[in-house]
């Protein structure tokens, strides 16, 4: 279940937009310009089912996303979708992993408090007995150079 974001959860001045998501879903999203730096030495790990519904998150995921674990399990992964991320990036992700391949890219994620954090994300299909059972996504600290390149590139992809 994906709820609209609430003004009382947001820290700082925010902008409001309606985000169109995969599967005809839409979500009211409130976002700020406050960046949370990626913590050194940590990996953010999650798994989803084949439809992109979150089935597992690690502690770093919970800390960085700002949601309670109970709010994340059962929610679509697009709960982290930031309006600055071009839909083409996620189309590429799904096109790649649905072929059974690994996908890697730099992603700006949205926090519950409206802030954001950049990650270098790698997604792989979980193949069990020859069948894709879900996906594992592992994020690590991105280089600032790569993030700066994405900040310039992504607005051109809308």
């Amino acid at each position: 279940m994906l709820h609209d974001m609430k003004a009382e959860d947001i820290v700082g001045d925010f902008t409001e937009v309606t985000l169109k998501l995969y599967g005809g879903l839409s979500r009211e999203v409130l976002f700020t310009e406050i960046e949370t730096p990626y913590p050194d030495g940590k990996l953010i790990v999650s798994t989803t089912d084949t439809k992109g519904i979150i089935t597992h998150v690690n502690r770093s995921f919970v800390e960085m996303a700002g949601y309670e674990e109970s709010e994340l399990i059962g929610a679509p992964h697009s709960i982290l979708r930031h309006p600055d991320m071009p839909p083409a990036a996620f189309k590429d992700l799904w096109d790649t992993v649905s072929k059974g391949l690994k996908w890697q890219g730099f992603v700006k994620n949205l926090r519950k408090d409206g802030g954001y954090y950049w990650v270098k994300a790698t997604v792989i299909p979980n193949v069990r007995n020859g069948e894709v059972m879900g996906y594992t996504s592992v994020r690590r600290k991105p280089s600032r150079t790569k993030v700066e390149e994405c900040i310039k590139l992504y607005p051109t992809l809308f």
Binding site: L43, I124, N126, T136, V138
Partner: peptide
């Protein structure tokens, strides 16, 4: 087995 598969998948993401 699943715990091992999870670690293998995770290692797989890190070697990319």
């Amino acid at each position: 087995d699943e715990e091992m598969e999870f670690m293998i998948d995770l290692m797989d993401t890190l070697t990319m």
